[in-house]
Design a protein around this nucleic acid. Sequence first.
DNA 1: CGTGGGACCTGAACGC
DNA 2: TGCGTTCAGGTCCCAC
Length: 272
Amino acid sequence: MPELPEVETVVRGLRPHLQGAQIMHCWVDWHKVIEPYTAEDFDRLVAKQNIVSIDRRGKYILLKLNKGYLTIHLRMTGRLYISEHLRGMDKWVRFSLKLAPKSFLNFSDARKFGRVQYLDNLDDLNKKLGPEPLEIESSKLHPITSRSKRPIKSLLLDQSRLAGVGNIYADEALWIARIHPLTAAAEIPKRKANTLMLAIQKVLTAGIQHEGATISWYRKPNGESGDSQNHFEVYGKKGQLCSRCRTPINRIVVGQRGTHFCPSCQPLKLGE
DNA sequence: CGTGGGACCTGAACGC
DNA sequence: TGCGTTCAGGTCCCAC
């Protein structure tokens, strides 16, 4: 579910509730969510700490504590919200922080892919993640693409190259840039890579403005759906007509991920 | 080192 | 209605 715009929306929604809040205790229902720690050890690490700030890095949510960080990754079906009750809202709460004086930050996750980690610092995280797409210049994509023979679609999903782009926004950006998803990354000329980076920034920015895409599980922290799904051009639109050229949108599989594109606007041979 | 494929999980949608 | 199959917005791990 959540890509950069969804994670950013969650962070912005939670910030007023979490900034400066004190953690009383944590509660764990699914042991793997906090691997490799036990619930007891994890509680010892975070109890009595204050949440200094809440931010995002790629698709990771970062809670800076007095000492160390709590990082949360929503993976496919994770949700975060403030509640008066530990469970209450849904039956998939895997982890919860009890906050002073009396509220809970609930982490709910039907598929159990999501993870909550305690880190001393962010060095390892920053080491494995590429740059933030909204914080680099458009000229910075070409050095990344030029060194890989993989399909550009697969490269965009590689978090170690660029952090935060997921399956939906990759398809949307490639449509805007008129690049076929199977194009070998290194085959993309400098100018075209520049265009693609601007397209990525455009779809991510729009996604944030629309407060994320609710296809199935994603919700804003206040429980409402996002609106981004109503602005897609290709994702989930197989068979519908391309808004630019009226050709039916196609769906193929690239790197085991459903991939949507316009076969007319996004030819495999680059027209440059 | 780079890359492709399977594994990790459950729920919803769809076909019969 | 009920059962089996397929698919899902992500990442990790392991061969090659």
